[in-house]
Each structure stands twice: as structure tokens, then as C-alpha cells.
């Protein structure tokens, strides 16, 4: 059975396996394990973006219910569990906080021969995530900051530039340098 995810225990299920158990078996215990892991992080994400305590918990509920309902759309060859949950949290937050729609590309919007994941892509996805984590830790602080601001301040780069008094050209240069490193870490060409 897939229960507690303990990262220190190699026999414990990964969060990807937990999501698949929810999709396949409607496994409530697997869902509880996912909740215990992700709920405090989703709340932290919402708080970083300025939500108060109760709005943050509403977002948590909303996102976790969406996780339950949409689990079968999770594809471990395309994204890690954390990436998939991040995308849901981002979209639900845009809906709730900004009351805007998020224009999304759907799988059936693109020609079927595009983007076919390679067989070993699942392993690759996990490796890329760990490389990313390392690279983010090694970024010069000013580069890491312009990246994080996009995720945590709900501001586009021209707003970041205006508010911090950093010329837009400088913001873009920092960002591009950071992006080059990220691309290398992910294994793509810079």
C-alpha cells in the first residue's frame, strides 16, 4: 500500500507514485499523504504572494480538491508531482485572486506528433529537478531574486524594474544569465 512518503526511506512511495495511486485506485490514504506534504507548501506559496491566512487555506482546499479530481491527467513523463501541483496552484490562484482567466494550451491544441515524451523521460524529469535545485542554490543572489520575484510577487518584469529602481535592461540581463544556467542544468542547450 502507498501510505506515508518518507524521503529517507527508499521503499516509501514517491509523490509521483502517490498521485498515480489516487488516479488509478482513488486511494484516499495516498491522497492524505499528498495532502500532508503539499498543503503546507501551497499555503506557504499563497502567503508569499500576499494571501491572508484564511484565503491561503481556501486556496489549499481548492488545489487539493483539484488534485483529487484531475489526478488522471498527471503524466510522470512530462512533469514531477511538485511541478504538476505548482501549475494547479498557480492557475487556481489566478482564478481566485485576480479573477482572470488563464489562457492555457491544452494537449489537443498541438499537432499529435509533437512533444512525444521519450521512453526514458520520466527518469530524465527527476534528474532535471534535482539538477535544477542545485543550480538555483548556486545562482548569484541578484539573479536568483529576479527569478523568484516572477513566482512570488505576482509582478511582471517591467513592474519589478520600476518598483526596485533597477533599469529594465539590468533586470532582463540578470534574468537571461539566470535562464542560461537553468537551461544548462535541465540539459537543454543554453
Amino acid at each position: 500500500m502507498l501510505h506515508q512518503a518518507d524521503p529517507g526511506d527508499p521503499s516509501s512511495p514517491s509523490r509521483e507514485q502517490l498521485l498515480i495511486a489516487v488516479a488509478r485506485d482513488r486511494d484516499q490514504e495516498a491522497f492524505r499523504a499528498l495532502f500532508r506534504h503539499f498543503a503546507p507548501r501551497i499555503k506557504g506559496y499563497a502567503r508569499q504572494l500576499g494571501a491572508d491566512d484564511s484565503a491561503a487555506e481556501e486556496l489549499v482546499q481548492d488545489v487539493m480538491l483539484t488534485v483529487w479530481q484531475r489526478a488522471e491527467t498527471f503524466n510522470p513523463a512530462l512533469a514531477s508531482a511538485a511541478t504538476w501541483v505548482f501549475a494547479i496552484a498557480r492557475n487556481r490562484r489566478i482564478d481566485r485572486a485576480r479573477q482572470e482567466r488563464r489562457p492555457e494550451l491544452r494537449a489537443d491544441d498541438i499537432a499529435p506528433f509533437d512533444d512525444v515524451p521519450q521512453p526514458d523521460h520520466e527518469v530524465e524529469t527527476a534528474r532535471a529537478a534535482s539538477r535544477l535545485r542545485t543550480v538555483i542554490g548556486e545562482l548569484p543572489p541578484e539573479q536568483a531574486e529576479v527569478l523568484r520575484l516572477a513566482y512570488y510577487e505576482d509582478k511582471v518584469h517591467s513592474e519589478i524594474s520600476a518598483e526596485r529602481g533597477i533599469p529594465l535592461g539590468t533586470v532582463k540581463t540578470r534574468l537571461r544569465l539566470a535562464l542560461v544556467r537553468l537551461r544548462r542544468a535541465i540539459g537543454g542547450e543554453a
Partner: peptide, 21 residues
């Protein structure tokens, strides 16, 4: 988006209310 996933793992976790689960 993968970067967003990494940030979500690293964001300071905020304990949720006891009854939320």
C-alpha cells in the same frame, strides 16, 4: 514550470489548521 515545482518544494511551509485535511 519545473522551476516553479522546485520553488514549491522549497517555500517555507506554513502549517495548516488542524481540521483542514
Amino acid at each position: 514550470e519545473a522551476f516553479g515545482g522546485v520553488l514549491l518544494e522549497e517555500v517555507p511551509a506554513e502549517p495548516v489548521s488542524v481540521g483542514l485535511l
